[in-house]
Design a binder for these strands. Structure first.
Lengths: 334, 334
DNA sequence: ATGAAAGCGCTAACAA
DNA sequence: TTGTTAGCGCTTTCAT
């Protein structure tokens, strides 16, 4: 069942069928209806490969994610897919892990499929935000298709990025903590990504602005694992702290478990702040105050950009920022 | 940069290039190397649309999921994508929601892309397992491509299904509960899916086998929402129960919150069993004993099937079952 | 072992 | 408004 069959059945040429299928206005209403009827009866769908060959697009965008089983990224993909679907785009999903080699390999595989755009989810793709060379592979990809980064900033032609204002969010929270009287604020992260660095920058700036020292042993890199974090803190009797800022909720849950094990009263003796405002924040007791990075807004905004760029719109923001907000629960009292 | 360019540069015909690219053995080693060199230098990749047009495949499989932000499904997709990638397949991901209309629409969109196979993740696609007509849309899809169901059983030509032995797992746990002396076991589910029904069947059979009545008000459908569950139970003073089996961990967390609010000692005064053994089970306090349905095994097994079917292998299991196991934590003591 | 040429199903430029 | 036809880049049959 191809365009020739439909043309014959409708008594028109394939060009006319093509026009009808593609909604051209250069077809009389009569023939349009005639063709539409035939198409409907025959249940005809254009062959996407042939369309792709002619137009060099199959209306797909590639979504690259380090780990879709991560609760934050899966919800991002959920929003992205939903928006894209509305605009008639399908998405090819690929999980690259966190290693550069693999990231590049996955990007190649996606580019080979002639995707219309590439979306990189998570700041891991933005490198540390310091070493320019480490993001060269993104600029390479951008030679072929527009690249959109969710929560990461990379400079380059044909690259569009979005971030949430992590630096500011952590800055504000840290100052609140200090204002309340905290003096030993632990900063726990599981990553060296752009986003993680931004958060840390906010943390350090707040300390500086308040005239407090930035203590090296209060900035710790941990595994993204509840029990690992709990056990690490239980073992680390040397470091003393009275509050904790975590770069995701999973880490924060580990801290809550630590505090309970130690018999600490939360938040009286220890404030705990999580990140991403995921279901993990409300699954433990006390429920965790968590910084919400408004994933849905970032994703919506990004897809708008994607569509604009694909439609040749020139007024597209190369970079936009979404504010973060602290969702207050029971592990803080400010 | 196309096959003609390569042919010219290598001084051979496009047919030869094609043979080399596709690993045909009807090429002399000399020319193979010559062509390979040119391809390498030029950085040539075949146009997948043209390949697709000729071969009617682009080596993609469609993955349909009701909600990728769900922690269980995102980890399933994680395994699936990983396996498929190994075999050189890309996956097109689509999130259909739980409504039949939408499911069908999404399946159509996937089929239009000429996917090589369709994977349906989650028992929501298998209907209740009772009403045959409700799964007709799956059989329709199976006319076009082989369909594989993760955790659901549907009969039909070209349909391959996999389930975990939910019925047995719940049966065993329920009997353990009864053996321990529990007499009012609450069963909480958020779905009417095949899997949910299986779990309930195991629950009921255990009660029957132990000579206990199946009380209607102890089988409750709830929303998949921690606070909703907690509040519902707090309000429901009329129903009395001494233990709870939940069809996912999120519900179980709600029950834990309820029990703590009521000041109940867990598991002395109340046993709680979760499902899926997700991170939610270990994020609360006490940590939840949860039935693990071995998602990775199901996914691995399914992808093996996918590859076999696509390679024309005839010895493929139409249906396989993976056992579930209870991961014991602190909300049970047997 | 290699090449010539006919499709695969569609879009779009050009003609009518 | 409609039709004719030349690609799009590849695979594959059939010669050689």
């Amino acid at each position: 069942m191809n365009i020739y069959d439909i043309a014959e059945m409708a008594g028109v040429s394939i060009a006319t069928v093509s026009r009808v299928v593609n909604g051209s206005d250069k077809v009389s209403e009569t023939t349009r209806q005639k063709v539409l009827n035939v198409i409907d009866k025959a249940g005809y769908t254009p062959n996407v490969f042939a369309q792709g060959l002619g137009l060099n697009t199959m209306h797909t965008v590639g979504i690259l994610v380090p780990d879709i089983s991560d609760i934050y990224m899966s919800s991002a993909v959920f929003y992205l897919e939903g928006c894209l679907h509305k605009y008639g785009y399908d998405c090819i999903l690929s999980c690259s892990g966190f290693e550069t080699k693999q990231k590049e390999q996955h990007i190649h595989m996606l580019l080979d499929k002639h995707i219309d755009a590439l979306i990189l989810v998570g700041s891991t793709y933005a490198g540390s935000g310091r070493d320019h060379a480490k993001t060269d592979y993104i600029r390479d990809a951008a030679e072929k298709v527009p690249v959109f980064i969710i929560n990461g900033a990379v400079e380059g032609k044909n690259i569009y990025s979005s971030v949430c204002d992590d630096r500011r969010a952590v800055y504000v929270v840290t100052r609140k903590l200090i204002g309340k009287g905290r003096r030993h604020i632990l900063f726990l992260t599981d990553s060296h990504s752009y986003s993680s660095n931004e958060k840390m920058a906010g943390y350090e700036k707040a300390l500086n602005d308040e005239g407090l020292p930035v203590e090296g042993n209060l900035k710790i890199h941990v595994k993204n694992d509840i029990h690992y974090v709990r056990d690490l803190l239980l073992k680390s009797e040397a470091i003393c702290f009275d509050s904790v800022i975590c770069t995701n909720d999973s880490i924060a849950v580990g801290v809550v478990k630590f505090a309970k094990e130690r018999g600490l009263s939360i938040p009286r003796e220890m404030d705990i702040v999580g990140y991403n405002n995921s279901v993990l924040a409300v699954s433990c007791e006390p429920e965790i105050s968590s910084i919400d990075n408004h994933t849905s807004e970032i994703c919506d905004g990004t897809i708008e950009n994607v569509i604009s760029v694909l439609q040749g719109d020139s007024n597209v923001r190369k970079h936009f920022t979404v504010p973060c907000t602290l969702v207050k629960r029971s592990t803080t009292d400010f």
